[in-house]
Design a binder for these strands. Structure first.
Lengths: 196, 196
DNA sequence: AAATTTTATGAATCAGTATTCAAATATATT
DNA sequence: AATATATTTGAATACTGATTCATAAAATTT
């Protein structure tokens, strides 16, 4: 019996994220992913069934992490709804700030995964439901405007975050991450219009 | 001398939008675009240099329209900054509400165009500068919180709109367009947090 | 140290599709 | 109605790159 050395599965996935980020999913070549992960092309197919599987696994890992963080957050009884939303923004920024390539892939390729009805990204819908629940609680508790549509809000906020992350991944210097984070929080908390 | 009949250039571009929306840029086949526009494959190449050119032209037209609308809006002296932002949201929704395929392409494929340094989409940057100028004026005039970063705001808001349009293009029934429009306006005007 | 089993390799295969271009067709001109 | 010119066609081409699989290498067992 021979035993696997290193962690090729992980190496390959991390290389895939880098290559997907740099070239886009369709521009990414399996040969390049193999090279980046110091593995032969054939080995890619020992750990992942094909190129699409690599992309799906990237998103599964991501949404699983995001969901776990959100779940821990949602259960905190010592946080108000406002604080939960505040920390939810941190969850996103924390995950992506340590991996800008992941942010790029997230922003640009998510629709490829979502468009395909054959693949169900686990944890994605769980994440969304739980995020909506927080907003809904806020409306019941009176801290969030009850006239706003929960789903619309959720998409709007996540879309805004997504776009900012894209900008940051493309040009990290243009708007520093902490600035983005604070701006989003301010907009969500106080709204765009300044009232004295 | 023979004269061109119909408007193949337009027919082709409209077919391309439909096919790009349905299959994504990379999933879209030139043969399908030819079929949809009632033209032979060869004819596509008489009007557009290649597949990428089709995509670029879609975005050039789009940003040109958006820019023209915004310019007219920005020049209105009878509108306050707040009203201008309000109408800016209408500009987006008006253009896309009559063409959901265009919304889908806009949301999903913009990064392909932006990633390529060889193509400069005309009017895109003009649009963005002008949009930032409105926000900036609002800050100078005191109606917008001066602590907010103009670029960050611009990306956040457009990202939110983009995401909502994506949802609408995928599932038009989930959140009706007027609801989306009003929600965005409320969030921008009053902020997420409800104050009595 | 030979045999066995698992893991890894990468050249060759194969399928898909954007693009080309020689030929055909339609309109206009003489 | 013959000629000239512009427009259109779509089968054939050319290329790219994902995937396969016969072979090799490494670890483990006997």
């Amino acid at each position: 019996m021979r035993v696997k050395t290193g962690n090729k599965e992980k190496d390959i996935l991390e290389a895939a994220i880098r290559v997907f980020a740099k070239n886009g999913y369709h521009g990414a070549k399996m040969a390049k992913i193999a090279e980046e992960s110091n593995v032969s092309i054939g080995t890619l197919y020992l750990y992942y069934v094909n190129k699409e599987d690599l992309l799906v696994k990237v998103f599964e890992n991501l949404w699983k992490s995001l969901y776990n963080e959100l779940e821990a957050l949602a259960n905190r009884v010592d946080f108000s709804v406002t604080e939960k939303l505040d920390h939810l923004i941190d969850v996103f920024f924390d995950i992506f700030s340590s991996n800008s390539d992941l942010a790029t892939v997230f922003v640009n390729e998510q629709h490829l995964v979502m468009r395909n009805p054959e693949v169900q990204v686990m944890y994605y819908h769980d994440f969304m439901s739980k995020a909506e629940l927080i907003i809904y609680d806020g409306q019941k508790g009176g801290s969030i405007n009850p006239n706003l549509n929960v789903k619309a809000l959720r998409f709007f906020i996540l879309g805004g975050i997504r776009n900012l992350l894209e900008v940051w991944a493309l040009e990290p210097r243009l708007i520093p991450l902490p600035i983005m984070r604070n701006n989003i929080k301010t907009v969500i908390k106080n709204g765009l219009i300044h009232k004295n």
